[in-house]
Each structure stands twice: as structure tokens, then as C-alpha cells.
Computed example of a mutant assay.
Amino acid sequence: MTRWTHVRTERLWLDEPVDGDADALLTIHRDPASWRHFPSGVVTDPEAGRTMVGASRRRFERDGLAYWSIRDAADGPVIGRGGCSVPDEGLGEPGWWNLYYRFDQRVVGRGYATEMGLAALDAAHDVAPERPVLAYLLEHNHASRRTAEKVGLRLVWRGPDADNPDPAAVRLVYLDRDPDDALVDALDAVGMPRQGLLG
């Protein structure tokens, strides 16, 4: 198995976060423009950047893979956070990898999410191929949907977004494979009822 704490793609440097990344990660996640599809998701906790760094470190140690800090120059500033990580609620067997991506709005539109996402899928399939890769997103976030589709995921679930303040919001789940019974049960346990499963 490859060590995935530092990955180089054609244009990106993907690295396990370090303490010095915390402020940039916080800035990206508290920018309302990066949450225009889910305004209530804006991060307000001033400790959130440090929490993100700590969570990634813990998950890299526990699972061999987690969300990276993303740069588009070797010594450049952090421009995003993304990758595959096992959420704590997905720790059953085999659990799942959650594919995540959020970027500084100044670099959105360059295809970085797709480039990072492809590397993240390679990493997830190397570290624990038995775990499906899942992307969980809002239906009206067309850019995020395109990214999920470009990296090869397919839509398997559509239904209400139970925790969204907008009662009309619709959640989508994309996967890299057909869901088996164990995964459907796990998703059901975290609020995605099986009646939304697409055949």
C-alpha cells in the first residue's frame, strides 16, 4: 500500500495538513461564497481550522487516508481542502470513504476539484478498496454534481435533506459502485432512507 500523506498531481500538491494550514482552512470554510448552495454551513467557530488539521491527522493515522490541504504551488498558500476520509459514523464494516472538496473561491473553475478527486479515488481504492467512495451533495449544486460525475461516481440516492433549514432541499448520494445491503443499512442509519435509493 502506498503512503498517501503527500501526493503530487499534474498541478496540485496534496498534503496531510499541518498546524500552519489552520488559518487558511478557516478562511476558506468561513467564506459565505463557498457555501452559497448551503448558507447555513458557513463555518463560524474560530477554532475550526485547528479542528480540521487535527481531524485529518487523526484519520490519516487511523485509516491511512484523510482530507488533504491543497496547494497549486510547492510552497504556495493553501487553496483548498479535500480528499477521501472515513466519517466517524461510517466506521462500521466496511464503512465508506466520503469524498469532499472545498476551494478558495479565487481558484474555482480551474478543474482542481476533479484533479484532486481522481487522486482521492486512487488513494481510497489503494488503502481500502472494500470501502465504497461516497459523495453527498445538494441537488442544486451543479458544479459539485459535475465533479462527482467526472471522477466516475454515479447517482444512487435522491431524497430530502433532513438537516437542511430549507425544507425543499434535495440531497444526492453518488457512489463508485452499486450499494450493497450493508451500505444501504449504514446510510439508512444516518438519515438516508432506503426509499430514496435509485435502481
Rank of each mutant, 00 (worst) to 15 (best):
residue 124 A to R: 01
residue 111 G to E: 06
residue 76 G to T: 14
residue 22 A to D: 09
residue 127 V to C: 11
residue 183 L to F: 06
residue 38 F to Q: 14
residue 155 L to Y: 07
residue 199 G to T: 08
residue 131 R to F: 00
residue 102 R to E: 13
residue 109 G to M: 03
residue 135 A to N: 12
residue 92 G to L: 12
residue 167 P to Q: 12
residue 12 L to S: 03
residue 21 D to G: 13
residue 78 V to L: 10
residue 163 D to K: 15
residue 3 R to E: 12
residue 57 R to Q: 14
residue 15 D to G: 09
residue 71 R to V: 07
residue 184 V to N: 10
residue 24 A to D: 15
residue 86 V to A: 09
residue 72 D to A: 13
residue 137 L to E: 00
residue 166 D to W: 15
residue 84 C to A: 06
residue 17 P to R: 07
residue 198 L to K: 14
residue 152 G to Y: 12
residue 166 D to A: 07
residue 96 W to Q: 06
residue 122 D to I: 02
residue 188 D to Q: 14
residue 75 D to H: 15
residue 112 Y to R: 00
residue 182 A to I: 10
residue 165 P to N: 11
residue 30 R to T: 03
residue 24 A to Q: 09
residue 61 E to F: 08
residue 98 N to Q: 13
residue 97 W to G: 05
residue 171 R to Q: 11
residue 198 L to R: 14
residue 142 H to T: 12
residue 34 S to Q: 09
residue 60 F to R: 01
residue 90 G to R: 00
residue 12 L to F: 14
residue 41 G to E: 03
residue 97 W to D: 05
residue 128 A to N: 13
residue 150 K to C: 03
residue 151 V to R: 03
residue 36 R to M: 07
residue 10 E to S: 09
residue 83 G to R: 04
residue 158 R to S: 00
residue 44 T to S: 12
residue 49 G to Q: 02
residue 47 E to S: 13
residue 20 G to E: 15
residue 162 A to N: 08
residue 120 A to Q: 09
residue 130 E to C: 10
residue 3 R to Q: 14
residue 193 P to K: 13
residue 4 W to C: 02
residue 14 L to Y: 01
residue 150 K to A: 14
residue 154 R to T: 13
residue 143 A to I: 13
residue 94 P to T: 07
residue 12 L to T: 00
residue 160 P to H: 10
residue 37 H to T: 10
residue 104 D to S: 05
residue 163 D to A: 15
residue 167 P to E: 08
residue 1 M to Y: 04
residue 132 P to W: 10
residue 113 A to E: 02
residue 114 T to E: 10
residue 65 L to I: 08
residue 41 G to P: 08
residue 191 G to R: 15
residue 16 E to N: 12
residue 134 L to R: 01
residue 108 V to P: 00
residue 105 Q to T: 03
residue 181 D to F: 07
residue 161 D to K: 08
residue 103 F to Q: 01
residue 9 T to K: 09
residue 119 A to I: 06
residue 143 A to E: 14
residue 195 Q to L: 04
residue 151 V to A: 10
residue 33 A to L: 15
residue 107 V to E: 10
residue 98 N to C: 05
residue 196 G to W: 06
residue 94 P to V: 01
residue 43 V to Q: 01
residue 164 N to S: 15
residue 183 L to Y: 03
